[in-house]
Design a binder for these strands. Sequence first.
DNA 1: GTTGAAAAAACAGAGGA
DNA 2: TCCTCTGTTTTTTCAAC
Lengths: 144, 144
Amino acid sequence: MDQVDSKILSLMHENARISISEMSKMIAMSQPAVSERLRKLEEQGVVTAYRAQLSPQKLGKHTSAFVMFKTNCCPDFIKFCEASPEIVDLYRISGEYNFLMKVLTETSESLTQFLDTCNPYGFSTTIIVLSTAFEDKSLITSKV
Amino acid sequence: MDQVDSKILSLMHENARISISEMSKMIAMSQPAVSERLRKLEEQGVVTAYRAQLSPQKLGKHTSAFVMFKTNCCPDFIKFCEASPEIVDLYRISGEYNFLMKVLTETSESLTQFLDTCNPYGFSTTIIVLSTAFEDKSLITSKV
DNA sequence: GTTGAAAAAACAGAGGA
DNA sequence: TCCTCTGTTTTTTCAAC
């Protein structure tokens, strides 16, 4: 992991569909060399996936919320969460609550309906997202 | 936005570096047709970005937390957050707190140091992430 | 790490259901 | 309108160095 790798990761964070040849021009290195470095970063698990980022709004998901949950049936609860399309992220947390999840629903009504389906598993507190200032800031501080 | 578009978005969520030609085989449609559909989805803003997903651990970020913040100097606070590399996500929220942020730091010590830098802006509550059950579940429920 | 040739993919235009 | 077919250009892969 040197500065060239950092630059590759930084470019890939900006646009994961950039071609290897374009990257190779930007970092002044031959295309097979860049290709091999990227392959190694994938192999080492530094790059875990390449994902298209989709607009929730354009897909009809207009309500976003974080829900903190307190449950004592963890394995079942995790299965339930995996099967719930509304839940995009699920974290195990410390403190009064067990879990924190990010939820996307069409409307506040469908959020209510979703919360009702969670009731059998325990107690929750819901934090409504009013707006997103920014998301997915790069983990890499690339020089050059 | 028909089922073919859904399938394209689903494939792109799984692997954003998939080639158009491979997708065209999978959905039994010619390559220019798939290419044009993807172009339109980008143009319409359904696809907002393509990002490499990086492993925080492999980049030395071993501590993950959500921090709720209460501040009365919003514009300045947002600028501060944008300039803080530890903060990857920032949301405006309803309730007792103003903001919710996701923070990644190297250790719990560096999390403490980060929280100290936030002090001038208001009050915070920190939720430590013990583990991630899952993240970035697909927004698309693609048939076929 | 570079170069250069072969294979694959993306692009752009013409024409058809 | 949306798709397919086809030829051209670009990119990727793989050999040898």
